[in-house]
Amino acid sequence: MSPRREFATAALMCAVGAGSAVVAGGRSWATVRATDTITPLSQHVTGRELTAVALALGWAGLAGLAALFATRGRVRAAVGCLLALFGAGIGYASATAVRDTNVLRVAAEKSPMLRLDGDAVVQPAAWWIVSLAGGLLLAAAGVIILLRGARWPGMSARYETAGTGGAREGTPPGPPRAGATTRPQDGDASTLWKSLDRGEDPTLTPADRDDGGAREKEEH
C-alpha cells in the first residue's frame, strides 16, 4: 500500500471512530424499568448522561483528525499517540458507563421515584457498543499513525514553491527561455539611464533590437 493510501485509510478510520463516539453520545445507552412503584416507570439514560468523557474524547478525536492533515514527521507521530489515547479512553469510558450501579444512579437522579424501587431492571441498549467500537477504531488508527505517520507526505508535498517554475529548493535556476523579456534589476539603475540616453528601450531583448535594426535598414 502506498504512503498516500495509508494516510487516507488512517484518516478515514479516525473520522469514523471519533464520529461514532460523538453520534452515540447523544443516544440512549440504557433503559431502567421499575414496576413496584405507584405507577410503572421507564427511564432512558443517554451516553452523555452516563459519562461525558466518551463524548468529549470523540470531539477531541475529530480535532486530532484536523491536526493530522496540518502536521508531518514526528509531530504527526505525536498526534497519532494522542489519538490512540483518545480512542482507548472512549472504549474504557463506554464499557464502564453501562454498569448497573452507574445506570441506576443516573436514572434515580432524573426520576426520584426510582429510588423507592429496589428491584429496578437495567436494560442496556446497543449505542454504547457503537461508542466502544468507535473508540477501538480510533485507537487502532492512532497506533498506525504513530508507527507510520512520520513517513507519509505532508499536504504541501505536491505543490512547488511559487515562482520557481517547479524546480526543487536548492536547484539553481536555468537559462532564460528564448524570447523572454529581460528587465533591468533594481540595483542596475545606471544601465537603465544609459539605455534611455541612447534612445533605446531597456525592456527590449537583444533579439528585438536586432529585428528593429534590420527593419530600419530595409526601409532605407
Score class of each variant (00 low, 15 high):
9 T>N: 04
36 D>N: 15
30 A>T: 10
6 E>P: 03
13 M>P: 02
32 V>F: 00
32 V>N: 00
23 V>D: 00
22 V>H: 03
25 G>F: 05
18 A>G: 14
11 A>R: 02
27 R>P: 08
7 F>I: 07
27 R>I: 09
28 S>M: 13
14 C>H: 14
20 S>M: 12
23 V>K: 01
24 A>D: 00
11 A>K: 01
4 R>N: 12
22 V>G: 03
7 F>P: 02
15 A>V: 13
5 R>C: 06
36 D>Y: 13
4 R>A: 11
18 A>V: 13
11 A>F: 04
16 V>D: 01
25 G>D: 07
13 M>Y: 05
24 A>M: 04
25 G>V: 06
13 M>A: 14
25 G>C: 08
28 S>N: 15
27 R>F: 12
20 S>I: 02
9 T>E: 05
19 G>V: 05
35 T>D: 15
7 F>Y: 10
6 E>W: 09
17 G>S: 07
23 V>N: 00
24 A>F: 02
33 R>F: 08
32 V>H: 00
5 R>G: 07
21 A>L: 04
35 T>R: 13
10 A>D: 11
25 G>E: 04
10 A>M: 11
30 A>F: 10
33 R>W: 06
10 A>F: 09
23 V>Q: 00
10 A>Y: 07
12 L>I: 09
17 G>N: 04
10 A>K: 06
23 V>Y: 04
21 A>M: 02
19 G>P: 02
24 A>V: 02
27 R>H: 13
9 T>W: 07
8 A>M: 08
18 A>N: 12
20 S>W: 01
34 A>F: 04
7 F>S: 11
9 T>A: 11
20 S>H: 01
23 V>L: 08
9 T>P: 02
12 L>A: 13
30 A>V: 10
21 A>S: 07
7 F>R: 10
34 A>R: 00
22 V>Y: 03
36 D>L: 14
10 A>Q: 07
5 R>H: 08
19 G>K: 01
9 T>F: 10
24 A>K: 00
34 A>S: 15
17 G>L: 06
34 A>E: 05
11 A>G: 04
11 A>T: 03
6 E>T: 08
32 V>A: 01
33 R>C: 03
4 R>C: 06
13 M>H: 03
12 L>T: 11
15 A>L: 15
31 T>E: 09
29 W>Q: 11
36 D>V: 10
24 A>W: 00
7 F>E: 09
23 V>S: 01
11 A>P: 01
10 A>S: 14
28 S>P: 14
4 R>S: 11
22 V>A: 06
14 C>P: 09
8 A>I: 07
19 G>E: 03
16 V>T: 04
21 A>N: 01
20 S>A: 15
17 G>I: 06
27 R>L: 14
24 A>P: 05
27 R>N: 11
9 T>L: 13
19 G>Y: 02
34 A>P: 05
22 V>I: 15
28 S>V: 15
25 G>Y: 04
19 G>D: 04
18 A>K: 05
32 V>W: 00
27 R>K: 14
34 A>Q: 03
14 C>G: 15
28 S>K: 14
35 T>M: 13
27 R>M: 15
4 R>E: 14
4 R>T: 13
7 F>N: 09
17 G>Q: 04
16 V>I: 13
18 A>M: 14
24 A>S: 12
